[in-house]
Design a protein around this nucleic acid. Structure first.
Lengths: 243, 243
DNA sequence: ACCTGAACACCGTTCAAGT
DNA sequence: ACCTGAACACCGTTCAAGT
């Protein structure tokens, strides 16, 4: 009774398939994920998968939702009853949103291979909805109206995913054939510096800043810009519903 | 003489391969791109490709650069000699950056299939460098310092690519099996509305705003937020080098 | 220098057939 | 209801061999 280890012997669930897919993806990358290997991982024949799942595509959708299984969001807002209550909105929304964004990034980053394959797949499973609900709640109590809160949520989500996508790719596609990240950075920088100073004066001058890749700093830069850009949208004092 | 149509008969170039890859990608999507088909497209046997290219991976790098072949950036800044010259920076940087961002989006969007496969691949070919140089130039003359200009460039690039990636994916992964975009939107909205109002009060209430997908509006929202967030970084009057 | 033929070890998917 | 065996039409890549 209960869930036996995972490959008990009989009764493969769709969850099992999703988990197996994520495991393979993380272990061997994109090329490690085949229907045949997923089948083997759960102790079954390849053809059997098509009873549980219509497609490889559908399996990926499942895996996409399972990706959020162990993502624990920070508690949604938790208004401090004794704290300062600014009129029409709380201003601790920034650290709250920042924390969520950072956790989202590191979550995807520790599952790089899976993220690279699954990013861009919408598939808003139940676990993703939890994140969305709590983020919107935070923004609304901070004084954003519904439409802005929804748009901001989308903006943050797409930005973080796009960022991680770029972050997780070998920076110079061919050069990652065995070169430490710092070596790759130095090499990328040198490449930029050796460009024509006439044609690319700015790129050459800023080679160090472009080649980076201090990804943490870059992430914080983007996050700060997004939060600064959102700030003016808050209704810090609601004109119509004045207390 | 000169470049015969493209598949003259002898002499396949790496450019030919990249173009063929892009063509196949756009015509048949990700699964339409195989080494064998690329070979056929250029009138050669599959094994021959490996003389020109180490890998399928390398072919994708080539295609990634070729993706920017017909992207024509707006002229870089073009300071109006008679126009108003605000101290330490020009303020027409916003429309300039906005135009570039929009063109980047539509460029990728009209090559959705290719974009979905190639996004995330850094591969800064010469054509991408041109874009970078002109964007950085715009930002620098607008009063941003070097480091901020570099970071802003990265931020804009990753955001647009992340946005397009999400935009180009069938919104509810399984439901795109033959449903018009507006139908899919309505369906997604209804799905959100039918969620538990207790567990997801905000999501249910804002279902219309979340399901969208008025992607143009969403894009402009994000763009405005980014520009607003960048604005305060400008040195509108350089304190040390006052004229 | 550039291309082919044939082979190797894989794929996703279907379908009749088993229990 | 769930799984298998065998088959089909594909893959990427290698390698000796051709010109």
């Amino acid at each position: 009774m209960g869930t036996r280890h995972k490959t008990a012997h009989a009764g493969v669930t769709r969850e099992d398939l999703a988990d197996a897919a994520l495991r393979l993806l993380e272990r061997d990358g994109a090329k490690g994920l085949s229907m045949r290997k997923v089948a083997a991982e759960v102790g079954v024949q390849a053809a059997s998968l098509y009873w549980h799942v219509r497609d490889k595509e559908e399996l990926l959708d499942l895996a996409c939702d399972a990706l959020w299984a162990d993502f624990d969001a920070p508690p949604p807002h938790t208004t401090d009853p004794a704290g300062p209550h600014s009129p029409g909105g709380t201003d601790d929304w920034r650290p709250q949103v920042a924390v969520l964004a950072r956790r989202l990034r590191t979550h995807l980053l520790t599952r790089t291979n899976a993220a690279r394959v699954l990013v861009g797949r919408f598939a808003p499973g139940p676990r993703w909805l939890d994140r969305m609900e709590s983020l919107i709640a935070t923004l609304r109590t901070a004084g954003f109206d519904g439409r802005d809160a929804a748009d901001a949520t989308y903006l943050l989500g797409t930005w973080v995913q796009g960022f991680v996508l770029h972050e997780s790719v070998p920076m110079s596609a061919a050069e990652q054939r065995g070169a430490s990240p710092s070596e790759a950075t130095a090499l990328a920088r040198r490449e930029l510096e050796e460009l024509s100073g006439e044609r690319y004066p700015n790129v050459v001058a800023l080679a160090g800043d472009i080649a980076g890749p201090d990804m943490d700093t870059r992430f914080e830069f983007g996050l700060a810009r997004l939060l600064d850009g959102l700030e003016p949208l808050r209704a810090t004092a609601t004109p119509k519903q004045a207390e």
